[in-house]
């Protein structure tokens, strides 16, 4: 099962938007980390939204990777907002004792963009 999928990163004004709509594998997460870092450097974006409304589960590895992405982005002067974590997944994460502290969160993609100062 070769994985050639790549999560697209969309630029919207000063922000980068990543919408994860596939089951996240480790490889995909690492690829995403690299791609986002490169995109930030290339575009000079100020904000980053990672929308997770399409994922079916999140374990400690994925949580850690997302937290790392947030941290890397922060070091590059970019604010990260994670949006769309489904209630069941949020509950599972807290039960496991995991958190995404250090990364801002929003209920929806719209909420995330608002946080980044983009008004509709």
């Amino acid at each position: 099962m070769a994985e050639v999928v790549r999560i697209p990163i969309i630029r919207l004004y000063d922000n980068l938007i990543v919408s994860v709509q596939v089951s996240l594998s480790d490889k995909l997460v690492i690829q995403l980390k690299d791609d986002i870092t490169a995109a930030i450097e290339r575009t000079g974006a100020r904000g980053l939204v990672i929308d997770l409304s399409g994922i079916d589960m999140m374990d400690s590895y994925i949580s850690k990777a997302l937290r790392d992405i947030g941290l890397i982005a922060k070091l590059m002067g970019v604010r990260t907002v994670i949006s769309g974590v489904a209630p069941m997944i949020a509950m599972t994460l807290t039960e496991m004792g995991l958190d995404l502290s250090g990364v801002s969160t929003a209920l929806s993609l719209e909420g995330a963009l608002e946080q980044l100062g983009m008004d509709a």
């Binding site: 374990d59 400690s60 590895y61 949580s63 850690k64 599972t92 039960e95 496991m96 004792g97 995991l98």
Partner: peptide, 20 residues
Amino acid sequence: SGRYDSDTGMGMGLFGTRNL
């Protein structure tokens, strides 16, 4: 114990699994 810090995850894998 849930206070272990691994390089790969948050050191929470087994601890979290037990809780789930």
